[in-house]
Design a protein around this nucleic acid. Structure first.
Length: 561
RNA sequence: GCGCCCGUAGCUCAGCUGGAUAGAGUAGGUGGCUUCGAACCACUUGGUCGGGAGUUCGAAUCUCUCCGGGCGCGCCA
């Protein structure tokens, strides 16, 4: 209905443009918003105020001209000028109620759109190295990244979900030596414990499994333990596969899946790293200094140049990173979104600089980044430090087990990624009934309950027939609910374009709140058949939109609780 | 010192590309189940939107500058 009002205003403006001598280049953007206060009507536009300066007239005069030029519309009851020059539109009830017909007709497709035009988009998220179980920070990345993917799919993008991990290099060597030490019966506090070794108890589990000769089946790796404590290579392969499998299980329990697992080692084995380096050297953006090879990232906005090849001969991590992103570009992803922890934000400039230096026609601001800030974990009133090496640790699986999958996902995705997040485990566990996610789910379950009750009473209801009775919905609460429902599609597209899945959580909270309030004030299953059918239709529409929205967040919509 | 993020009610946080009297949860207070599920609702207490300056019809929102907190600033990833 918003689009129709915008169209009416545009027609009025075009008419005015003929009569008046408006500047040619004046192309006003018509903005129409749902009003916050019902005394301001249903929809309002600030167009007159934005035109005041270029036209050198008072906003209220312009508003009056626009109103006079507005074409008649069956959905508009009244138009008023208010305040400094707002144009307020009052809609008739049937125009507002048409959203119910839309929701019931479109079902799970309500809110979905094709604005993405099947653009190939890749989202890389989690991308944890296989050196330990996933922790809360990874959980936030998983929740945000997955919700982003769902949003992009809902808006018509062709989405690929990708997980990149480092299965070679110094960290993996540390891992292998740590497992080996456990195989030899060493404890982390031993003098002989490897420097920078991983001290967590899970290392002991890996060692035991290796010595037992277990077979490990991870998503992309299958390894049998060689049971030889001296064979560091075998231990390395086994440990990586073991921890990859653990992460797979964590992600599966969290309801997060990937299309592609990309191994850093493949970039080396397929010569992609050497190719990228060669290209960078040929393009003249590198130089030798102190026995190392440097990339002049300062040519592309970095504050200092970066070492590509260390004096000992190995590449620094960002070289395979650049090769990896070149590979993404070559795979045809016009948009790539990297969801990462903000502690790695320094890679953004570096990767982009490397890609520019390749001179491969990649846009300067490519790829996109969504960076989430740190998660502060509270337990027993104290902050739990996350340290893999120390082994003090809140794993994602602990959270799922203790708090529940739905609540964990909701908590981690309900806040803006740019804000730090305090996850109070005690609160999430002990007061789990006051959890906002249950509040939303409860609204859904309530409608399901109403439908069960309806059937028990022997009453019939169908979406098709109820549409004739929607004019019975005239209570303030009902009109407000319907307006809220009609705002859903725009909420979805905005969340997708701005990459802000948390706005869906906000929307659902408000929708659920309005529904609970409505439910407590009015009887759904009224004896009056017309009124009853109309109210049930509204309730079912609310249930549908809650289900659609929760699905975007990866949270379930239970029929009973 | 430089870069990024944050600073809104006691606490945790929303406030869409600037819009009409700043919102929610939680905590505190008072009420509401013989009636569709009380995991709910109604009312109520509580804020110089960190400070200051600027941009304009209008700023929590944009710009600048201070103050405070987080995270980065490796020939680690």
């Amino acid at each position: 209905m918003k689009a129709q009002i915008v169209s009416l205003i545009e027609q009025a403006l075009n008419a005015l443009k003929q009569g008046e001598n408006w500047p040619e280049d004046l192309r006003p953007q018509v903005q129409v918003d749902l009003t916050r206060d019902k005394s301001h009507g249903d929809l309002a536009s600030n167009i007159a105020m934005t035109l005041a300066k270029p036209l050198r007239k008072s906003p209220r005069d312009i508003a009056q001209q626009i109103i006079s030029a507005l074409p008649a519309s069956p959905m508009v009851n009244k138009v008023e000028i208010a305040g400094p020059g707002f144009i307020n539109f009052y809609l008739n009830n049937s125009a507002v109620a048409s959203v119910i017909t839309d929701v019931l007709g479109q079902g799970s497709n309500f809110g979905r759109s094709t604005i993405g035009q099947s653009e190939k988009v890749q989202v890389e998220y989690v991308s944890a190295n296989p050196t330990g179980p996933l922790h809360v920070g990874h959980g936030r990345g998983a929740a945000v990244g997955d919700a982003l993917c769902r949003l992009l799919q809902a808006t018509g993008h062709d989405v690929t979900r990708e997980f990149y991990y480092n299965d070679a290099g110094a960290q993996i060597d540390n891992l292998a030596r740590s497992v080996q030490a456990r195989c030899q019966g060493l404890e982390p506090d031993s003098d002989q414990w490897p420097t920078d070794g991983y001290r967590g108890d899970y290392i002991k589990d890996v060692a035991q499994s290796y010595l037992a000769g277990d077979r490990i089946d991870a998503e992309d790796k299958h390894v049998t333990g060689a049971a030889e404590p001296d064979n560091l290579d075998a231990i390395r392969d086994f440990a990586v596969a073991y921890l990859r499998r653990e992460q797979d299980l964590d992600l599966k329990a969290f309801g997060v899946n990937f299309d592609v697992y990309f191994l850093e080692s493949s970039l080396y084995s397929e010569g992609k790293v050497d190719e990228a380096v060669k290209q960078l050297v040929e393009n003249g953006h590198t130089y030798e200094k102190d026995g190392a090879l440097w990339l002049k990232t300062t040519d592309f906005g970095d504050d200092k140049d970066r070492v590509m090849r260390k004096s000992e001969g190995g590449y620094t991590y960002f070289v395979p990173d650049v090769a990896y992103h070149l590979n993404k570009w070559q795979r045809g992803f016009s948009t790539v979104i990297n969801e990462q922890g903000a502690d790695h934000h320094s890679t953004v400039t570096r990767v982009r600089a490397g890609l520019q230096a390749l001179n491969a026609g990649i846009p300067e601001a490519w790829p996109d980044y969504v960076l989430h800030q740190m998660v502060l974990v509270m337990r027993g009133g104290e902050e739990v430090k996350i340290s893999k090496r120390a082994g003090s640790y809140v794993t994602l699986r602990d959270l799922i087990d203790e708090v529940g999958r739905d609540a964990t996902r909701y908590f981690l995705v309900a806040r803006a990624a740019s804000s730090q997040l305090t996850f109070d485990i005690d609160l999430a566990i002990s007061q789990s009934n006051d959890n906002p996610v249950y509040y939303i789910q409860y609204a859904h379950a309530r409608v399901c309950s109403v439908l069960r009750k309806l059937a028990e009473q022997g009453w019939q209801w169908s979406a098709e027939h109820s549409c004739d009775t929607l004019d019975r919905l005239s209570e303030e609460a009902e009109l407000a609910l319907m307006k809220r429902l009609s705002a859903y599609p725009a909420t979805v597209t905005a969340a997708a374009t701005h990459r802000e899945p948390h706005t869906i959580a906000n929307y659902l909270r408000e929708l659920a709140g309005e529904f609970h309030s409505y439910y407590n004030s009015f009887k759904m299953l009224d004896d009056d058949e017309g009124l009853r059918n109309a109210r049930v239709a509204l309730s079912v529409a609310v249930k549908q939109v809650i289900a659609n929205g929760l699905d975007l967040l990866g949270v379930s919509a239970p029929e009973e609780m």
